[in-house]
Simulated scan of single mutants.
Amino acid sequence: MGVKHGRDYEGILTDLTQAIGRIPDRYVFFEMDEEEWSRLGVTEQLEVDEALAEDLFYALGEESVIPVGSGVVIHDKDQHRIHILIGEEELTFVPLI
């Protein structure tokens, strides 16, 4: 189902892809190790990031907190945002409206 949003889906997906790209070990979400990730080219890494962003968008409709590598992705229904954190530090957020 995904999260409720008022912005264009493609814009949200682009922003979310860039945001999760800030999590250095995001590849762990797909059960990859650092060596496997480093063997991918830049284009392939971007494709994996886009797939992850899409998976997260839909999964956040069911689960409001999803761990991604050393980070966590949180759907804040009240603020209409998706927050990306590592530990207590917020890396960025993606507005949904």
Rank of each mutant, 00 (worst) to 15 (best):
V28P: 03
E62T: 07
G87E: 01
V48T: 06
M1A: 12
H5N: 09
G61M: 13
V73D: 00
V3C: 00
Y27H: 13
D15S: 11
L40Y: 14
L46E: 05
G21E: 12
M1R: 05
M32A: 04
T43K: 15
V68N: 00
L96S: 01
Q18H: 09
D8T: 07
G41R: 03
T92E: 04
F93W: 15
Y27G: 13
W37P: 15
G11P: 07
D25Q: 07
V42T: 15
S64Q: 14
P67R: 03
R22H: 09
L60G: 01
A53N: 01
A19M: 14
T43E: 15
Y27P: 02
R22E: 11
S70G: 11
S38R: 14
R39P: 07
T92R: 02
T17H: 04
E62Q: 12
I20T: 08
D15W: 11
L52M: 01
G21I: 00
I74N: 02
V73I: 05
T43Q: 15
T43M: 07
M1C: 15
D78E: 15
H75W: 06
T14F: 10
A51I: 14
H5P: 03
S38L: 14
F30L: 06
G21M: 12
G6Y: 14
D25W: 10
R81K: 12
E35I: 14
D33P: 01
L96H: 00
Y58L: 05
Y27W: 15
I84N: 02
M32D: 03
S70N: 11
E44W: 15
Q18N: 13
K77E: 06
P67H: 06
L13N: 05
P95R: 09
D76M: 03
L16A: 06
I66N: 00
L85S: 10
Y27M: 14
L52I: 02
